[in-house]
Structures are given as structure tokens and as C-alpha cells.
């Protein structure tokens, strides 16, 4: 006849775990906690970035190429602190609907960055630029080409009204340039 174990017997049986078992159990538990924390960190960061992206797009100029599903906020400056969260306007170049308005932004083969699809740009596509008041200026893509990083002549004023969008080529050694002329 099988009798139910008393609480004293249960307590006795727990003492039978070896140190090795406890070590494995605690190590595993810590590993799970750390692993989940890291994954959670990435998740929260992604949500945070998406939130800030939406916020930036509400409060700042926005560049849109609807045919390539590109829509990016544009902040002033092109240092990495700006480019890590948005596209950046080269200070001193052009203005909305005037001169050569130059923009740089990240692209990537690994991550979802603003200008990933820019390499698919073709002549004739429409680039829309919205200022802070959401007035929009339309440009038509006229040419796409690749330059070396030191070819800053593309930032010059050519006497017309254009937009110049710059991002890296896949290997990051050169710069892919899309030029749009004002409609």
C-alpha cells in the first residue's frame, strides 16, 4: 500500500539534489534572465526609435520618395549623431525649393535604414520634400550615379534648383547619389 509522504519526508528528499545540479540550475536561470534582458533591450530600443522617428517626422522637414517607400525626417547637419536617427541636411547647401538642397542618410544590407531602397531610384521618379510647415516641393529624379567620398563637388550650387540625396554603396566605400530637379 502506497502511503502519502509526510512533509518531513519531502524535506528530506530535497536534500538529495547535488551541488552540480544546483549549479547547473542557477547558471541556466541566470543565462535565461540575461538572454531575455538583451532581447528585451533590443525590442524596447526598436520601439523607442520608431516612436522618435514618428515624432521627428511631425516636427521636422520630411523627404519622401513614395515609389521607393522612402520617408525620412531631415535634420540639420550630417554628423553621425544626426544620421543615426534621421537623414541630415548639409548645412549651407540650398533651401526648400531653392539651390542645391543636399541630404545624406544611412542605407544598409542588414538593417532597415531610411535609404535602403535608394539604389533602385530611376530617372522620372518624384521626390517630395516637405518643410516644417509641411509645404511640399516636388523634384523629378534626373540622374543617379556613384562618386568617391572625397567628391564634394556634388554639393556645389549649379545655378538651378535641385535636390541631391547621398547614401553609401553596399560596401560603404563609395557614395550613391541621386539628383532631382525641381518640377
Amino acid at each position: 500500500m502506497l502511503l502519502p509522504a509526510s512533509s518531513a519526508e519531502k524535506k528530506m528528499s530535497s536534500k538529495t539534489y547535488t551541488k552540480k545540479q544546483w549549479a547547473l540550475f542557477i547558471t541556466g536561470l541566470i543565462a535565461i534572465i540575461i538572454g531575455v534582458s538583451i532581447l528585451g533591450f533590443f525590442g524596447i530600443r526598436k520601439i523607442n526609435r520608431e516612436y522618435h522617428k514618428q515624432k521627428l517626422m511631425r516636427e521636422n522637414p520630411v523627404l519622401e520618395i513614395s515609389e521607393l517607400h522612402i520617408k525620412a525626417p531631415v535634420l540639420e547637419g550630417t554628423d553621425q549623431s544626426v544620421l543615426s536617427k534621421s537623414a541630415g541636411h548639409f548645412i549651407g547647401t540650398g533651401d526648400f525649393g531653392k539651390g542645391n538642397y543636399c541630404i545624406a542618410g544611412h542605407s544598409s544590407t542588414l538593417y532597415k535604414e531610411y535609404f535602403n531602397n535608394l539604389s533602385d531610384a530611376e530617372a522620372g521618379m518624384t521626390i517630395s520634400l516637405y518643410d516644417k510647415e509641411k509645404n511640399h516641393y516636388d523634384y523629378t529624379v534626373s540622374e543617379c550615379f556613384i562618386v568617391e567620398p572625397n567628391e564634394t563637388w556634388i554639393l556645389d550650387d549649379f545655378g538651378d534648383t535641385r535636390i541631391t540625396i547621398i547614401t553609401c554603396t553596399d560596401d560603404g566605400t563609395q557614395r550613391f547619389v541621386v539628383v532631382g530637379k525641381k518640377k
Partner: peptide, 17 residues
């Protein structure tokens, strides 16, 4: 004075994940 580096293909984050 060069055009900024705009390629973000760092594998660090993927490896961490």
C-alpha cells in the same frame, strides 16, 4: 571634408541578438 559615411552594415547588433 569627405561626404559622410552612410553605410550601416555593422554586424555587432545581429551578433549580440
Amino acid at each position: 571634408t569627405d561626404l559622410p559615411q552612410t553605410g550601416n552594415n555593422s554586424k555587432t547588433n545581429i551578433l549580440i541578438a
